[in-house]
Design a protein around this nucleic acid. Structure first.
Lengths: 190, 190
DNA sequence: ATCTTTCTGGAACGACCAGTCAAATAAAGA
DNA sequence: TCTTTATTTGACTGGTCGTTCCAGAAAGAT
């Protein structure tokens, strides 16, 4: 073994994630990445491959983390409806410092052109909707949510509203606007 | 007066709009614009200024048209709820040929960094939500929508879901998925 | 038909892009 | 301490970016 890396790989990846989330893939130059990650150019290429590979890894990592955090928030004890409300609002609040949700950003920027990006997006959307569906099922079991609601449809709908919230937050919507929107969405489940 | 332009300005602008909607601002090169618009390089710069000015004009035009079309669809006679459903589905269906809604795309790509882009987005979102609110008010008057619904909140919520639908369509959601999602959203108003 | 004004198309510009190379540096093992 | 191996640093590459210049072509006005 020889000289170890002088930077924290995870921290560098997190910085890249934030930069990509703010400026998009095409809007982020390698010079900006090098600067925001605080590492040398060659270190970037040695450690992460190239710009596209770095983007994929950032996206993968971001989606995995986000779904995990939302799962934790949704699966904790308490009223399922209240959990959903808190999870959506908590997440949307993080957008407001001018960074987009990288998952939504990647879909908007690439659509289905980039197969790898699309696969990550599709897979994490499925995971997230499964978690929403489980929470909704729990709400049905508890009698909070009426039995005629199909958990899969409702989960997809909640995800759609969630995406809309993130875009609105990116556009500068106030926290009050977001909260009122979430409360309207939850009416459907009540 | 001298030689008239050999191309249709509106058609060229429409082509640019489609290209921007597909690849985003940063993802669209002037070479691609020249090709997709079917005009010469110099004609582009003489007629539209520069790439950014062309983007702004395309965005403005697109938002104006879209809001107008949605207004027409929403204000036509018939059940307000059915009008909303048809308007949302009709619009989302147009996304599927791998072009994004340019309005949503611009917010996702730029956030609030570009003041002019943000202003267009904000203004057309307000217009659209006013139209939704009027339609919802009409639904209340007709007794289709319960009186405790606040039209402004409901309109913002419908817009959020609408944005989510467009992103999902861009990501490859099926028409059935979109329809089920719209129907869930309309439950909130019923 | 000629003039004048505009449009057109191709070549060219400097700036910046993503990515590479090689010399210099630093840490671990002998 | 000396070798080995990896990381770092910064200069550098070919290519593409948005934009402009220029010469030629075309159509209304005279």
């Amino acid at each position: 073994m020889a000289r170890p890396k002088a930077f924290d790989r995870d921290a560098a990846l997190a910085a890249a994630t934030k930069t990509f989330a703010t400026y998009g893939f095409e809007g982020t130059s390698t010079a900006l990445l090098v600067k925001s990650m605080g590492i040398g150019r060659q270190s970037l290429y040695d450690t992460f491959g190239d710009k596209h590979a770095l983007y994929l890894e950032a996206l993968q990592h971001y989606c995995f983390d986000s779904v995990g955090q939302l799962a934790a928030a949704l699966q904790s004890a308490g009223s399922p409806l209240a959990r959903i409300e808190a999870a959506l609002l908590g997440f949307a609040a993080r957008i407001q410092d001018d960074t987009m949700c990288l998952g939504v950003g990647s879909i908007c920027e690439f659509g289905r052109r980039d197969r790898e990006v699309a696969a990550i997006g599709k897979s994490s959307a499925t995971s997230l909707q499964n978690i929403f569906a489980a929470t909704i099922q729990r709400g049905k079991d508890l009698g909070e949510i009426p039995p005629e609601i199909d958990p899969k449809d409702a989960a997809r709908f909640i995800n759609a509203t969630f995406i809309g919230l993130k875009v609105m937050a990116r556009g500068g919507a106030t926290h009050d606007d977001l909260r009122a929107t979430v409360q309207m969405a939850l009416r459907c489940l009540g």
